[in-house]
């Protein structure tokens, strides 16, 4: 086997390895990516029910309701311009509070309720997930002079 043929073989092996990897990645980008939307974007993007995505915003004041089974909670996520109802079954993270930033991962049900399979809360008071901050920024406004009651109106 000559040097040239060996090099050719190496290059071919390398290329096919890369080719397989690219194919795998393109395949994974179909389902493996989870897009992040704010409640306003969720409305404008016409998300198909069942698609996995993340939504982020603040947990609306006085919106957290615990269902009778004791494990399912429903609440609303707001970017202060639009809100999305969310349902989640499980133990919420340590820092899940009304009025705090939250990111929920799951999919939108046909009835418009976001079925969350995973809840991420703000890590601590000195840190906000950039995603939440960006969602709030994108919503374009904080309600002026609005108390918690003002926020509940969608």
């Amino acid at each position: 086997m000559t040097r040239k043929r060996r090099r050719l073989l190496t290059v071919v092996a390398g290329m096919s390895c890369l080719g397989v990897a690219v194919a795998l990645m393109l395949n994974a980008y179909g389902d493996g990516l989870v897009f992040f939307y704010s409640p306003s974007e969720l409305e404008s993007h016409h998300v198909t029910p069942g698609q996995r995505l993340r939504i982020g915003g603040l947990v609306e004041e006085n919106s957290v309701v615990r269902q009778s089974d004791g494990l399912t909670i429903t609440f609303k996520v707001t970017d202060l311009s639009k809100t999305v109802p969310v349902s989640y079954r499980g133990i919420v993270p340590d820092l899940f509070r009304e009025g705090q930033g939250v990111v929920a991962e799951g999919s939108l049900g046909a009835d418009g309720v976001f079925m969350a399979s995973n809840i991420l809360a703000k890590h601590d008071e000195k840190y906000m997930p950039p995603e939440v901050a960006a969602a709030l920024k994108k919503s374009g406004r904080w309600k002026d002079g609005a108390g918690p009651e003002g926020v509940t109106k969608p």
């Binding site: 950039p130 920024k137 374009g140 904080w142 002026d144 002079g145 609005a146 108390g147």
Partner: peptide, 18 residues
């Protein structure tokens, strides 16, 4: 420069909340 601390407050130019 996509840093979250760069976010301007939407409150700017608006009355401070009551």
């Amino acid at each position: 420069y996509l840093h979250p601390s760069e976010i301007p407050s939407p409150l700017i130019g608006k009355p401070a909340p009551a």
